[in-house]
């Protein structure tokens, strides 16, 4: 493999790692590859989350075992879906990594060759995600939106869904699940992307992983929204907006 891969622009990343030598190696590899711009290095989860509140990056190099909170705690707290590469010296986290849909898993210490392999894999994923937009005649990547309905790419076709029929949307990292009374559909996108397209009079984001259709809400008990047999949590950071939007007295 050559020393450099071909990206249109550099991937932005942060390194979340409590061992300085490991972080230094990673930074050096990023610089050497000229593929990745390191926006910051954080020794713990809290500092990384504070940064991500202010600035979004494409990729997180994430250690698992750190003082205070683990890399998985950080993943639970993310409000968007960047690419994730776990960097750990334990192989035992492979199953958790799979569960969290991480993009790659680098066992420390790893060589530059292994780093480049991970970046090549990531490059493919970025290209696949960007591919539909490269087709000139094609509509929006995974969703065509109109005032009353939208089309999503699911089950190898464009499926028409009436906005009124949607109960809620659930984030599944690089995918979003659309739940309607009749059926659920999974499409390759992010909740953030859907949020931009759907948020309006009838949709509201109530949790980092959920957008719900206000018209479909049956009742709210404590921090849980009930709609047609489904229970959706209200996130701490969304309580005020939910109260305001739903005219809670």
């Amino acid at each position: 493999m050559g020393g450099h891969l071909c990206f249109r622009m550099k991937i932005t990343c942060i390194i979340v790692e409590d061992i300085q030598i490991a972080a230094d190696f990673l930074r050096k590899f990023c610089e050497k590859s000229d593929l990745v711009e390191v926006k910051g290095h954080f020794l713990n989860v809290a500092d990384a989350l504070a940064f991500l509140d202010q600035e979004k990056v494409d990729l997180l190099f994430l250690d698992v075992e750190m003082p205070g909170a683990t890399g998985f705690d950080l993943l639970d707290s993310l409000t968007y879906s960047p690419k994730i590469i776990l960097t750990t010296s334990k192989t035992e986290y492979a199953f958790d990594a799979f569960q969290y849909h991480v993009n790659d898993y680098l066992k420390k210490p790893f060589t530059y060759k292994r780093f480049l392999e991970a970046m090549q894999k990531l490059q493919q994923q970025f290209q696949e995600a960007a591919a539909p937009t490269a087709q000139p005649a094609a509509p929006a990547p995974s969703l065509i939106s109109d005032t009353d309905f939208l089309f999503i790419k699911a089950d190898d076709k464009l499926v028409k869904i009436k906005k009124d029929d949607i109960l809620f949307l659930e984030s599944m990292r690089d995918y979003v699940k659309f739940v309607t009374p009749a059926k659920s559909y999974i499409t390759y996108s992010t909740l953030k992307n859907m949020e931009e397209k759907l948020i309006g009079p009838i949709f509201i984001k109530v949790h980092r992983s959920y957008i719900v259709n206000i018209n479909k809400i049956d009742d709210i008990r404590g921090n849980t929204i009930y709609l047609l047999g489904n229970q959706i949590p209200i996130g701490k950071g969304h309580k005020e907006e939910v109260a305001a939007r739903l005219n809670i007295l």
């Binding site: 409590d18 061992i19 030598i21 490991a22 190696f25 075992e65 003082p67 010296s89 334990k90 420390k108 210490p109």
Partner: peptide
Amino acid sequence: TSVHTCKTLFGYVGFTDLQ
């Protein structure tokens, strides 16, 4: 956890058996 950190450190100087 502390031994885990040292284990990682040993790896960067080639002590794979000590890891």
